[in-house]
Amino acid sequence: MISLKENLGKVTIVDFWASWCGPCRVENPNVVAIYNEFHSKGLNIVGVSLDKDAAKWKEAIAKDKLTWIHVSHLKFWEEPIAAQYGVQSIPATFILDASGNIVARDLRGEELKAKIKELLSK
């Protein structure tokens, strides 16, 4: 069991993705770079996968060098965490503050980096 509350940083990205999602995999190097730059300043990431094949999911985590916490029920679009967040498509990102409040969503690339930088400088 992993608790989101226990894994909140000053800023936390909840990243919904899957090994089979092309746009997710394209965005992963950017997310890795942001994590590497800002983790020591208080950024955490929790990856939530909509995979259904554990081997492919774990292989993608290793190949893309996703070193943060990952969770999945391996239920594809029936992923309960995705349902809780109302995720209809992936990649989907939710940026949470230290209290767990959603402060931004679905940012990518430079927009994501700029928002993380802004939030961590507060």
Rank of each mutant, 00 (worst) to 15 (best):
W57K: 08
A82L: 11
V46R: 08
I102N: 01
D64N: 03
A18K: 10
K115T: 02
I61P: 11
C21L: 09
E27G: 05
M1K: 15
G9K: 03
V11N: 04
A62P: 00
C24R: 00
P91E: 07
K5P: 02
L96I: 14
L74I: 04
V103P: 07
I2T: 15
Y35L: 03
D53I: 13
S72C: 01
A114T: 11
A62F: 13
D15M: 08
N44W: 01
V87E: 02
C24L: 05
S19E: 13
K56V: 08
I34T: 02
F94E: 09
I102K: 08
G42D: 13
Q88N: 14
A60P: 10
V71C: 10
S49R: 07
S19T: 08
H70Y: 11
C24G: 05
G47T: 08
I95T: 10
G109A: 09
F38R: 02
W17I: 01
M1D: 15
S89W: 07
K10Y: 08
E111Q: 14
L43G: 10
S3Q: 14
T93I: 12
W68P: 06
A92K: 13
E37V: 09
I102F: 01
E59R: 11
D97S: 11
A104I: 12
R105D: 07
A83G: 15
C24E: 09
I61H: 11
I102V: 15
K41D: 11
A83W: 12
W68D: 02
E6Y: 12
I34L: 08
P91V: 08
K115D: 05
N36H: 13
K56T: 10
P80F: 05
F38K: 00
G47R: 09
E37D: 13
G22V: 07
E78W: 08
I95C: 07
